[in-house]
């Protein structure tokens, strides 16, 4: 390119000031921690052993794959992230990272994480990881999120895959146990996000994201939260029913499920006269604790069983 040609384009050229931390934030670290945790529990529960280094590589690839889909999500959603309070400070809307950089980063991490997982662990888990990234970035982010209020119901599948991938990394198979782990997160996602959507209604309205409360109304959302809470409480005890967790886990998960149901019932009963959305906020907070506690209990039991054989 000649100097003249460069000079004429000088106004278009941008030089990145992005720091490594900006790229790290593109990977949605908090989501990544949850993915690492649930995938690790899936691995612990699996009836197989793996070389510790290969186990570490599996977890690393799954978490990087999750980070990649986060980056692709931020690339595509920059326009709506910019108008929502919760997301306005993300690296792309603030201009710390350009959309092209976020896209390249997401694609490179996707390719490396999937191929490394396939070569180092097995190709079934690599396929599931690739499918998860595709599901989150394309099916959820590009298609469902802006077109249907059932967005997070179907999109929630992407967040539910990590324990199944962890299980597949260990055993090379998908079995009923890993499907139950998938189901717990899948059924947990709608009440978790709809509780948030109820008290962040304006945010989603401003961004024109068709969340259930904006489209179907608060009453319908509260009904559906209660419905999913029933299914979640039941699926939470399935590991004990199917025999891959103990009766102690069964009692613990039943108690957590009962609390989840109670808060969902309060959300259902209290309708829109409760202006401060106290129960919705409580349910949202408890839902995070619920998922953590369920998987922590499953993981702890699996460790104990592995230690005492």
């Amino acid at each position: 390119m000649s100097v003249e040609a460069i000079e004429t384009k000088s106004d278009d050229v941008l030089i990145s000031s992005a720091m490594p931390g900006d790229y790290y934030r593109l990977m949605k670290p908090r989501v990544m921690y949850l993915v690492i945790f649930t995938a690790f529990v899936g691995m612990l529960l699996a009836p197989a052993n793996i070389n510790p280094l290969l186990g570490f590589i599996a977890i690393l690839c799954i978490s990087i794959g999750a980070g990649a889909s986060g980056s692709l999500n931020m690339w595509y959603d920059a326009d709506i992230d910019a108008v929502m309070d919760r997301t306005a400070k993300r690296p792309v809307p603030t201009g710390a990272v350009t959309p092209d950089q976020a896209l390249s980063f997401g694609i490179i991490l996707s390719v490396f994480s999937v191929i490394t997982l396939g070569l180092m662990v097995n190709w079934l888990s690599a396929f599931l990881l690739a499918f998860t990234i595709f599901f989150y970035a394309v099916i959820y982010t590009m298609w469902l999120k802006r077109s249907t209020p059932q967005n997070i119901v179907i999109g929630g599948a992407a967040g539910a895959f990590p324990p199944m991938i962890g299980w597949a990394a260990m055993t090379g198979s998908v079995t009923i146990e890993s499907i139950v782990l998938f189901a717990i997160i899948f059924l947990w996602t709608p009440p978790h996000f709809w509780a948030l959507a109820l008290f962040r209604l304006k945010d989603y309205e401003n961004a024109s994201v068709p969340m259930l409360p904006n489209v179907a109304g608060e009453r319908s959302t509260r009904n559906q939260i209660l419905g999913y809470a029933v299914l979640l409480a039941l699926s939470g005890i399935l590991p004990a029913v199917l025999g891959f967790a103990s009766i102690y886990y069964g009692v613990f998960s039943a108690a957590l499920g009962a609390r989840f149901l109670w808060l969902s019932f309060k959300v259902w009963k209290n309708g829109s006269e409760n202006e401060h959305y106290g129960f919705e906020k409580k349910l949202f907070g408890f839902s995070i604790f619920y998922l953590f506690a369920i998987f922590a209990a499953l993981g702890t039991e699996a460790v104990i069983m592995r230690v005492i054989g």
Partner: peptide, 11 residues
């Protein structure tokens, strides 16, 4: 992101 300025051949 800040804009870089061209000075002759280089940025």
């Amino acid at each position: 992101m800040a804009e870089g300025k061209f000075t002759q051949e280089t940025v």
